[in-house]
Nucleic acid binder design. Structure first.
Length: 436
RNA sequence: GGGCUCGUAGUGAAGUGGUCUAUCACGCCUCCCUGUCACGGAGGAGAUCGCCGGUUCAAAUCCGGUCGGGCCCGCCA
């Protein structure tokens, strides 16, 4: 029966069978140490028999093997135990030298990332690199658990669309049996329709954007968390739900992955029980006053402002999370709700974390006539199949609702403190990478 | 779409007109080594300096083009 690396120490005195990959060889003459890697980590094997060592001659890191050996308690061994009197059986010999080293921490300098992604399948055999994606998996689990507890139904919506989208980002176009289709840049319209069925829905799925952006925070394929909830009394209720979700997921991650985060040099988490809110106008004013760089005419926040307000809030309120709310009407999309208390702004908030926008959190226009009016004003063809069925949901009754589009890759990036969003992505897609 | 930058063994770096017949570290190969854990020691192989053209007595080094990266701005579910 197979014993996993982390359980070896529980079998002192017994002979156990481990399976894994050859991770490291250290030959010291009459004594050889090898590390075997499995899904739990590493186990150290001590080999004295020359014939056993000889089985590994010419075999490279990555060789798949089994080891049968006696578990010996040994304070000098990592984990406190190791295998002795080992019998090695090679299952899949690897003779080619790997193109990158996998048993040492791999540098994430920007100019080296291309090499890492080129050899991603091997690079992810590095235990340090794996931690990023175990943390990512946990974040997603905590998010699902939070939303499940709050009675959100997880849905999946189509990614092949009939051309129309809610506007904004550039879309990928493709041939669909002779007609033009696009790849979804967001499940926006579908999740709103589903409020009419389930009240509260969410989806975790890829979204595709064809922008020619080449920055550390953009990719062509991103993992989006989309949430939509009905019967909300105001914008704050939506902002708080998304804020609470984020705080909960971050706190749990920092608790459960404390060691991993530390070894990845993640910053200390500084959050409060509620995410502080500033209007865009307030941020422009504060930033202009503090830096002398006048942004009061900007419709959106500039990247430097996003960084600045995060640092400001961390200092003033002890929160690395902050909301920018009440965006100017010039920036609105047709599905946003205009602020009834100030028609020059829309009820739309951006959630910022450690200097980066990670989610947009608006309240939707739910009144059919008002929505049609806003769509027409935006130049949208309301008879187009991409919009017709969307409007049907409103015509037959949708309550006031709001939600968010939330960048999972960016959340992972910022949680760990990675410089580039692509480092938080298994196989990133950008303007010049489509493989592996 | 605009701007700025970088391409040197498998990997990461040094070298920015001549002493470069290109240096170092890791990895790889051979040998030595009984407590390694970035093991140590001795030796060895491995690079037409991204590609094309130009300037020059002389180009990894300067210039132009090209291909491939990176970073920022714009744009942005």
């Amino acid at each position: 029966m197979r014993i996993l690396s982390s359980d070896v120490k529980d079998h002192v005195g017994k002979t156990v069978h481990v399976q894994g990959w050859l991770h490291k060889k250290r030959l010291l003459g009459g004594l050889t140490f090898i590390n075997v890697r499995d899904r739990r980590g590493l186990v150290q094997v001590v080999i004295k028999d020359k014939a056993e060592v000889e089985k590994l001659r010419g075999l490279q890191i990555g060789t798949v093997l089994t080891v049968d050996g006696k578990v010996v308690e040994e304070p000098r061994a990592p984990g406190g135990a190791e295998l002795h009197d080992a019998v090695v059986t090679v299952l899949v010999p690897v003779t080619d030298e790997p193109p990158i080293e996998i048993d040492k921490p791999i540098g994430h300098k920007p100019e080296n990332l291309d090499t890492l992604f080129e050899h991603r399948a091997l690079n992810l055999r590095n235990l340090q690199e794996q931690k990023i994606f175990k943390i990512r998996a946990s974040l997603l689990r905590y998010i699902r658990e939070f939303l499940g507890k709050h009675e959100f139904v997880e849905i999946q919506t189509p990614k092949l669309l009939a051309g129309a989208t809610e506007g904004g980002a550039e879309v990928f176009k493709l041939d669909y049996f002779g007609q033009e289709a696009t790849l979804a840049q967001s499940p926006q319209l579908y999740k709103q329709m589903m409020v009419g069925a389930f009240e509260r829905v969410f989806e975790i799925a890829p979204a595709f954007r064809a922008e020619l952006s080449a920055t550390t925070r953009h990719m062509s394929e991103v993992m989006m968390l989309d949430i939509e909830m009905g019967f909300v009394k105001d914008h704050d209720e939506v902002l708080d739900m998304v804020g609470d979700l984020t705080i909960d997921a971050l706190r749990r991650t920092y608790k459960d992955h404390a060691d991993d985060l530390k070894s990845l040099n993640a910053p200390e988490l500084v959050v409060t029980d509620k995410v502080p809110k500033f209007s865009v106008a307030e941020i422009h004013e504060l930033y202009t006053k503090a830096t002398g760089n006048d942004t009061t005419e900007e419709k959106d926040l500039i990247p430097d402002e996003e960084k600045w307000i995060c640092e400001y809030t961390k200092k003033q309120s002890g929160s690395e999370l902050v909301y920018a709310v009440k965006f100017p009407i010039e920036a609105m999309k047709f599905y946003h709700q205009v602020n009834p208390e100030d028609p020059t702004t829309v009820l739309w908030g951006d959630l910022l974390f450690r200097g980066l926008e990670i989610a947009t959190v608006p309240l939707r226009e739910y009144r059919y006539d008002k929505l049609v009016e806003q769509m027409k004003a935006a130049g949208v063809d309301v008879e187009h199949p991409g919009y017709k069925y969307y409007l049907q949901a409103f015509k037959f009754g949708l309550p006031q609702h709001g939600g968010c589009g939330y960048g999972i890759d960016r959340l992972v990036q910022k949680t760990i403190g990675l410089k580039n969003v692509k480092e938080a992505t298994l196989f990133p897609r950008d303007i010049n990478r489509l493989a592996p």
